[in-house]
Design a protein around this nucleic acid. Structure first.
Lengths: 197, 197
DNA sequence: AAACTGATTGACAACTCACTCAGTTTCTGA
DNA sequence: TCAGAAACTGAGTGAGTTGTCAATCAGTTT
């Protein structure tokens, strides 16, 4: 493994565990077994390191998600696959997902590149959920009135589930399965409409 | 307003906007219009400031949530009230909620007081959701198999919705209403069971 | 008036941080 | 074999960090 890869690996581990600001470049260098200066030969600055981690992980996430969706045919099974994929990806790339979830955009610095990257990623995921919902409407496996709204709700649910799984604040092992069952009921065709008791 | 309150107010604003580590004590002092040393007269250290913000906000959240629930009678309207309360509270205490959402526990430092506080808070919220689900089962407004699991799912959904509203990553104004409709369908009694297409 | 109180100040110590750079080692291909 | 390029080193720099502390000050009590 090259030095650059070693640096990325160490940075990923440390950023995931302690956070970006709480991790020093000296710490990364020591963990990677390289001199401090080597970091700045391979990366413009500290932000450059996390930028590379972000874009690599984001690309991998989207690519794998698309593959998983393509393997399913009906709308409801695609939604199920999307939710289940999230848990699998979070397990296999726990550090990257932790870094993503740690990131919280500064509401005034909206032009920050990482903020834009995450926003774009989320928009694309929502787009994929929407397409799956449309598929479900067409094949009759899903009933849904407002596609964009429902997709955003499902995306929020996925985000929340991932957060709870990562922080282990909730002691619910089958959270993902519960979410799938929840979505299946909410999207089931033939179900009665919203009652207003 | 006393100096201590001014410090808390400034710290709340800055922590919400930039994050804890990215905000210096000098910055807080300047914003609050007090000398740097005054911070450490009123608080043991920098963490002491955020600790006070955390516990005050957490207490206010729980207290208000309980009041809101108590005002509703049926199970499903209580669930609806819980979801809607979250949006109202987030709007009225946007900075505090932002600080909460920014916080991400270090997976190795599990005994961190803030980590414990958040975990306890979440456990209590889930407990309130569970009780509302039970009420719904009893009065027939809700159908639900696994109460704890469903409560955790709803809690995750609320967390995700709050996050999306705060980061405005999703451009869906009616996210909360969408979530309520989604939950109403998922919890509706008489709906058919999960299909396995 | 003298003594005491808690609040406030700002200079300061001790330290950490990201980043630089002059110099060294390693690689590469002709 | 060797010159030039690329990779690497680690001491050094200056800015910034949290937290300390002796001194001051406005009130209040004795």
């Amino acid at each position: 493994m090259g030095r650059k890869q070693a640096i990325i690996q160490s940075a990923t581990r440390l950023f995931a565990q302690k956070g970006f600001a709480e991790t020093s470049t000296a710490e990364i260098a020591e963990d990677a077994g390289v001199a401090h200066g080597t970091l700045f030969y391979h990366f413009k600055n500290k932000r450059g390191i996390i930028h590379e981690i972000f874009s690599m992980a984001g690309e991998a996430y989207l690519q794998n998600l698309k593959n998983v969706i393509a393997r399913k045919t009906t709308g409801i099974t695609r939604i199920e696959a999307i939710i289940r994929f999230n848990e699998n990806f979070s397990r296999d790339h726990i550090q990257q997902i932790r870094i993503f979830q740690r990131f919280f955009p500064d509401p005034v610095e909206v032009s920050d590149p990482e903020t834009r990257l995450i926003a774009s990623l989320q928009q694309q995921v929502i787009g994929l959920i929407e397409k799956s919902l449309e598929t479900g409407l067409a094949d009759g496996s899903i009933a849904c009135k407002n596609i964009n709204e429902t997709a955003s709700v499902i995306h929020s649910l996925i985000f929340g589930i991932t957060h709870m799984n990562l922080t282990k604040a909730i002691n619910t092992p089958q959270l993902t399965e519960g979410a799938i069952a929840f979505c299946r009921r909410a999207l089931a065709p033939g179900g009665q409409d919203c009652q207003t008791i």
